[in-house]
Nucleic acid binder design. Structure first.
Lengths: 145, 145
DNA sequence: GTCAATGCAAACGCTTTGCACCTTG
DNA sequence: CAAGGTGCAAAGCGTTTGCATTGAC
């Protein structure tokens, strides 16, 4: 994982920002939980289960920083809090999510859905699309019955 | 507009709910602003510009009721407050929105984007899709330059 | 040593809720 | 007149911010 930590260090240096323990801890946390979508509170309590002390305000400030830097992605799954996920290299556009309306499970969709449609829409509406968010609601295989 | 008001009355009766002045005013307001996406505060202040007095809590409670009843649709355009819009008859699935990242304009998209893709995804992920939300971010024709 | 980062607590902004009063059916 | 609806003010809740202190470079 050493090389990945250096990656954080580099991104921070690029912007003249400091490499602090808190930022390292939060980044490590995302590396260890790449499949999850965690809220600020969840991140805080998980990190505190480890060894480190950290303030909630710092969590929020760091999440904002990482989001702006493109290290993580912020999601809204309609549960009243923002959720965050490490941005992977092959996320050119963001991937999409299936949201189970019964159990709340979030399933990632990596098919690229929208390329064709975006072109159609750009022509039809004279609008230049830079990003899109697709959320698909329904019932997952366990909850279908 | 009389027949449309009766429509509200009917929907309320179905559920054993009362037809009050406040509910009528809010419904009328949506009928008069079918193209807009209004927040609770905006609805309140517009209604108060008319003649009627109404409390903000009532606005919220009514918006929730209308949303549950399928009279209106609740949207999130990432500006920290929910926005509401009358649900039109041809909204089988919700329509979608282009969001200009420069001027904030919201443009409605009525192309049905997702029918094909939904089928693909349902097979691929064994997930039964009941609804979807698509938000497309970018630059509108006025802001493209 | 300087400037950014942190932690705490207070503030914020939207939304929800408890409760006494009012209105619809 | 009974049950639901309203208005007010207070509370809730996630998130942000001011400020004094701490820590990285």
């Amino acid at each position: 994982m050493g090389n990945k930590k250096n990656l954080l260090n580099e991104k921070l240096k690029e912007k003249g920002l400091k490499f602090t323990n808190q930022r390292k801890d939060i980044y490590d946390f995302f590396l260890k939980n790449q499949d999850k979508h965690m809220s600020a509170e969840e991140i805080l309590s998980e990190i505190e289960k480890g060894n480190s002390e950290i303030g909630l305000a710092t969590i929020y400030r760091t999440l904002q920083l990482f989001t702006d830097t493109g290290i993580i992605v912020k999601h809204d799954f309609d549960d009243g809090r923002s959720r965050y996920e490490l941005k992977t290299d092959n996320d050119v556009h963001n991937h999409h999510h299936l949201i189970c309306q019964v159990c709340g499970k979030i399933i990632e969709v990596n098919m690229d859905l929208m390329d064709e449609l975006e072109k159609e829409i750009e022509d039809e509406y004279d609008f230049e699309i830079t990003n899109h968010i697709v959320k698909l609601y329904g019932h997952c295989k366990d909850c279908k019955k």
